[in-house]
Design a protein around this nucleic acid. Structure first.
Lengths: 251, 251
DNA sequence: ATGTCTTTGTGAACGCGTGCACAAAGATGG
DNA sequence: CCATCTTTGTGCACGCGTTCACAAAGACAT
């Protein structure tokens, strides 16, 4: 997490809870799919199932946006798509820069999910002079030296950091100084930013570690299991870690 | 989110709250850095700062693991690294398969953060026959047809899905049927899995949409203290979205 | 051994998020 | 126009997570 505005301590933005905001994109995706199939209306139950949430939660979420449903019928799909898009600020086009065009940065540049949701990759930036000018995803990579100018010229307020961990804080500082106020960080580092700047982080190895924790717990319940009891077959042929690694011993 | 075990409704695994589990990797990273600098002990205050969290929260988190600190001194770095690693199941080596070797899948295969944390990429799988045999990150890509055999031969219990959205559920079903019980999903879809299977999702466009929401809110606050009216500074030279896109109109 | 000083570990209070359950609203049919 | 039936919107209760604040524990100096 960043030092600045990351978890937004109870700062219920304009009355919409953070947890709800995080689910709106989910609803939007489900609604867009329905819209493409020309489904006119949808009930909270159906939509909740499509989004993978509880229907009561969904209704409460929508209640923060206003009363957009019709009792006895459900929600108008097109209207709801519009309302959520507007609420999320997706009726506008957000220019985004990606800094650090390695494997991940290139993958992000090629990712279709951005453009389809109102985000436009305005520039790709990398510190390697050898990359300069080389096109990635049809966009020429520019050098870090011009970072400030690029941000300014394009009116960018959202930056994506996909650099190695060591460079992330420095890049972050420059982005912020140049006027960026929202950062999506893929580097495995805690970024420190001033108040007023939002940081969200995506950390691949952390996600795996959380999975490993639960996986280990499942394995530990194998026979002992009170409820689930996986009871893996005899012999150590079962799924799971290959073996024990000594690791560091306690002091 | 997935239908199955994703949010784990209050199923405090072995007494350790989910929120704490999610922070352990963060602490571990900070501690590893200290360890590499041969720092012997660290106080909750220092470590909390390095991990970007509140020190009280950190102490409470550690209290779930046991009393590993020394009052008046702090925590033994090496010992804590060991304890957290063990708790997370990282003293074991977890074989992982990545399904869908497009831009993102390739980036994940090349990502160093996996190997350094006890995760080993056991296999890369893709549905494109043209990719078969081609090495990515030094590992030959295998065809989806052999998915079940690969899972079984390598004793894989953690799978990463980096396929297009359309293929994700099908791949997921096959992974689960083959014995995978933890899935990290990069495809923008809600996966449905049976009980006992954990799913974590990483959705790039959702993260950006959340940032856009806050960005829009900040813009709205510019001059007008709180409620509406964007009132951007004179001329539209400020940072921000390029312009309004009509989008869908309300019914 | 005793006192002081630092830092941990945790009891308690509070706030957010979730889910139940139901009343109100409106559509639909007779 | 009235009755019935479906589905929303929400009051309420509960539990998790966070934070404060402080007593207990131990290091360290004298």
């Amino acid at each position: 997490m960043a030092t600045g505005r990351t978890h937004r301590p109870a700062t219920r933005s304009r009355g919409i809870p953070e947890a709800t905001v995080a689910r709106l994109p989910l609803y939007l995706r489900a609604l867009t799919a329905l819209s493409e199939r020309s489904v006119p209306t949808v009930s909270s139950e159906e939509l909740a199932a499509a989004a993978g949430v509880n229907s009561a939660k969904l209704r409460k979420d929508f209640s923060y946006l206003g009363s957009y449903g019709t009792r006895g019928v459900g929600y108008d799909v097109e209207y709801l798509v519009y309302q959520i898009s507007r609420e999320l600020g997706l009726t506008q086009d957000w220019p985004v820069v990606i800094v650090g065009i390695g494997n991940l940065g290139a993958a992000l540049a090629n990712y279709g999910g951005f453009a389809s949701r109102g985000f436009r990759v305005a520039a790709l930036i990398d510190a390697d002079p050898a990359m300069a000018g080389k096109p990635v995803a049809g966009i020429p990579v520019q050098h870090t030296d011009d970072l400030e100018k690029i941000i300014d010229d394009n009116g960018v307020s959202i930056g994506v950091i996909a650099t190695p961990a060591g460079a992330a804080q420095q890049v972050c500082d420059r982005l912020v100084a140049a006027g960026v106020t929202s950062i999506l960080n893929f580097a495995p580092t805690v970024l420190s930013v001033p108040d007023g700047v939002d940081v969200r982080k995506v950390d691949l190895s952390i996600e795996l570690q959380i999975l490993a924790f639960h996986e280990q717990r499942k394995a530990g319940e194998e026979v002992t299991g009170e409820s689930g009891a996986v009871v893996r077959a005899p012999k150590d042929s079962g799924k799971g870690p290959d073996g024990d690694v000594p690791a560091v011993m306690p002091a």
